[in-house]
Write a protein that binds this DNA or RNA. Structure first.
Lengths: 200, 200
DNA sequence: CGTATGCTCAAACGATCGTTTGATTCCTGC
DNA sequence: GCAGGAATCAAACGATCGTTTGAGCATACG
């Protein structure tokens, strides 16, 4: 595997486990089996590496989300659950692919960081995705004020981040595969969020 | 103010802003206006300081939560919204008191850390609070299976953490006080969570 | 063959980390 | 008023941090 890919993979894992500050380039390059200087050579700096970790996954994730939304957007038969599914399913697929599940934890850390630079990066690059989903929710929930809708979408985001990153206290039981566990998480999440959104 | 209190206050602020690894003892003691060695003298180590930051706030927070729950527990007139209020209101009061609001961000970081030691500490010391609230929800939602209930409570926790720590993209408008903003957050949260919990 | 070009490597840079030390100051109780 | 523990202080400890350097290696092109 090319050096850049090995670095990105190891970075994803260690950022998820120890945070951006907590994971050192020495641990990281050792885990990737590359030289210490390789990070600065290929990415310029640790901060640029962090951005690249996000870009790689979010490009794919949000691309799939928008594609799924496109398919059902405007359709009179589309339900709240369908829209939630379009948002959640790609995250589910990602978490089934290799250590993609770790990326959801990285994403959760980014929220916790409250770092303005990072927030601006995420907002600039992927804010339009949230806007399109919110617009679709607005179409399906015309009785809600703009402000009320924003609040609810924000709360859905919170529950989603919490659930998909494995924050919660609910631990996977040993007789359930990781795959099944995530599927169940998504099902519960969609039902819960749909009820919250539909609340009069 | 005594040295220990000044350290705890500065620690809360810097842990919220820069994380546990990101905030150094040198920044921290400088902000508190105390000597560098004071942390190790009064707390033993940085890790023990972190635990003390949690203990100080959570003792008060969960004490108030249980007291509020005690008042309404078992009452036939009690609603889901009441129980949610008993859980959320003390967090709201805390966030109105000085830099108590920063503590909610510290708490959110603790979730993101995924650190086993920290999780065990929180679970051991304050798990019984979650258990009592869950029991009251179970009484009010007898049609839900134990598993289903656990899932929903977990998702409520996620939305709560997200909202109260100010993760979300919703920013307070300049014509609204911090106090009012938090009140509104709590109102939206209670309505949203109640709908999710009550979902058939 | 010679020589660019892209990449890897060990080593070192200065800065900063958490912690410890030993001297000094403060304050309390006899 | 003085002994003695509590608290504060400047300084230093070894370790580790992100980054830079310059030599060495490889592959491709004239």
């Amino acid at each position: 595997m090319p050096t850049k890919e090995r670095i990105l993979g190891a970075a994803e894992e260690l950022f998820a486990r120890h945070g951006f500050e907590g994971a050192s380039l020495r641990q990281l390059t050792a885990a990737a089996g590359v030289n210490l200087a390789a990070v600065n050579y290929h990415f310029g700096s640790k901060d640029r590496l962090i951005e690249e970790v996000f870009r790689r996954r979010l490009d794919q994730l949000n691309g799939r989300r928008l594609a799924a939304l496109q398919k059902i957007s405007g359709d009179p038969g589309t339900t709240i659950e369908d829209v939630l599914g379009a948002f959640i399913a790609p995250a589910l697929e990602l978490s089934h692919d290799g250590n993609g599940s770790l990326f959801m934890r990285v994403l959760a850390r980014a929220f916790a960081e409250h770092d303005d630079t990072l927030r601006k990066f995420l907002s600039d690059n992927y804010g339009h995705v949230m806007r399109q989903f919110t617009a679709e929710f607005a179409r399906l929930l015309p009785h809600l004020s703009k402000e009320e809708l924003y609040w609810r979408v924000d709360l859905v985001t919170g529950a989603l981040t919490h659930a998909m990153s494995g924050f919660g206290m609910i631990q996977r039981k040993s007789d359930v595969t990781e795959h099944t566990h995530r599927e169940q998480t998504a099902q519960h999440l969609i039902r819960f969020a749909a009820a919250g959104l539909k609340s009069p």
